[in-house]
Design a binder for these strands. Structure first.
Lengths: 137, 137
DNA sequence: ATTAACGTTTACGTTAACGTAAACTTGCGC
DNA sequence: GCGCAAGTTTACGTTAACGTAAACGTTAAT
């Protein structure tokens, strides 16, 4: 079940990061590529982990949070105790993500408004009556 | 038109941050509260700015990005040049936010899956035809 | 008047997440 | 063999976003 492998610079290229970054993730225990002599060989599962890490980072997670998150998919689900704890964890994460979605929606609404004002101002710089936006200050 | 003002500890309390954090934001030019003698007096607009900053932080923005974002609402929209640049900026931000939403939705889907597996494993740990989770002996 | 609870400035410390540089080794194209 | 590109380790540097501590001022109650 061992598919294609990748060099570090291939992955760096693919994800738009430096090799230093990838080695740093290994240093922190987020990935563990095989070695062929001294050189690192990245499996597809390594690739996916990096992808998940970067996805986490895009929404503002720390590397530690990324690991915690990824480890949920790959659980050492021994006993019921741990399972229940994991479910709690999942619930907290979901709450947090939903809050983030809400934040994003609010910001998107703000952007719409700003853009509207801009375009209006560009189009009819003088033809408008007065401030149609009772928002801030 | 000057409403209620707040002390630094009131705001720190309200937002669940330390006073150091609020002073730090001022140090970085993100807010500029008035003074009454030596003491800072925070207006409601200061309060809102802090709220917006923290919202930005929740979705992983840096403080600088937060400022940039907030300043969009409060534009020095002088000439058409600047307006067009602002619109471009808005568009880029929107793209980024939409990507983040996508990331979040993917993660939420992952969480659903994990939780499903957990609950299944908890509920039918013995009543299932066969152990869906291969333990080691 | 003293203490307590708040505020202030100044300044050094800390953590995360890499950047950057130096000094190797290794495979390969000529 | 030689150079060169791509890999490696080691180690110090950097930036953001605060934490933490010291030393001090100011009001309000005891």
């Amino acid at each position: 079940m061992n598919g294609k492998t990748h060099t570090i610079s291939e992955l760096a290229q693919e994800f738009g990061v430096t090799t230093r970054t990838i080695r740093f993730y290994e240093e922190k225990g987020l990935i563990s590529p095989l070695r062929q002599g001294q050189k690192r060989l990245y499996s597809n599962s390594d690739r996916v982990r990096i992808k998940l890490i970067l996805r986490g980072k895009r929404i503002g997670m720390s590397l530690q949070e990324c690991v915690d998150f990824i480890d949920m998919y790959d659980p050492e689900h021994n006993n019921a105790e741990q399972l229940r704890s994991l479910i709690d964890n999942v619930k907290r994460r979901r709450e947090s993500l939903l809050q983030q979605k809400k934040d994003i929606d609010d910001m998107l609404a703000g952007l719409d408004e700003v853009q509207g004002l801009c375009e209006e101002s560009l189009a009819g710089g003088r033809t408008r009556k007065n401030n149609p936006n009772p928002e801030k200050h």
